[in-house]
Design a protein around this nucleic acid. Structure first.
Length: 206
DNA sequence: GACAAGATTAGCT
DNA sequence: GCTAATCTTGTCT
């Protein structure tokens, strides 16, 4: 039985949480289907100084959930088509989050294929923030959920074999126009489920 | 109210 | 590599 990460995990520096989330398992029970995936790519968004962060110089509206306590889910809708899933980090009132950009599907592949497309390559099912949300059926109903206490939606405390040996890469973030200079994107080296992007080649080991 | 931008994706060329 | 699709949110009037 998988146990959720405790609150303390999320109450730390946002980039530290982002890096430590790589390799962890996100678990979700959706209509009697059990879905799990290994997190392979993330990005940090930090309210205090990061103009790309939805909570930068704002406290009301969409970003209000980002000011809740670390471990809260922040989900928003973009481009008229896609949802993006984030985990709030830090103490209440800080306004930070980590975007989950890509996962490696583990359990529930049959269900994921049924919603993403049966003919798609396994590598094209969850290798992007919008794709992951569609695969795991994450939407605005999940916005504000507490991943520490929710039994059917959480990130697991138990690490997979090899967690401590994985090599982490760092680069600037994808798809933003402000805050481009901050190297807040992290992903697992040589994992084929990381989103395809030219930035993968220029990333550095950390 | 109106309007532009957006933490993307799929489908072409 | 390029671009249309599509709609919520934020910003301004």
């Amino acid at each position: 039985m998988l146990k959720p990460l405790p609150r303390e995990f999320y109450l730390r520096d946002t980039t530290e949480v982002a890096k430590d989330l790589l390799g962890k398992v996100i678990a979700r029970k959706y209509k009697n289907t059990f879905l799990t995936g290994k997190i392979v790519e993330v990005e940090a968004y930090i309210g205090s100084h990061d103009p790309a962060c939805h909570a930068f110089n704002k406290t009301k509206g969409r970003c209000e959930v980002m000011y809740l306590i670390g471990g809260t889910a922040y989900v928003y809708f973009v481009y008229g088509n896609h949802y993006c899933f984030n985990v709030v980090t830090g103490k209440e009132g800080e306004g930070n989050a980590v975007l989950i950009r890509a996962v490696e599907p583990l359990k529930g592949l049959k269900f994921i294929k049924s919603v993403r497309g049966r003919d798609k390559s396994i590598y094209d099912l969850t290798n992007g923030p919008g794709k992951f949300c569609e695969a795991f059926q994450i939407n605005l109903r999940d916005n504000g959920k507490d991943l520490v206490n929710d039994k059917s939606f959480f990130i697991s405390l138990n690490n997979l074999p090899g967690y401590s040996k994985q090599v982490i890469m760092q680069s600037v973030r994808i798809g933003i126009n402000k805050g481009k200079e901050f190297p807040y994107r992290f992903f697992i080296l040589n994992n084929p489920f990381v989103s395809k992007h030219k930035l993968n080649e220029t990333a550095v080991k950390i």
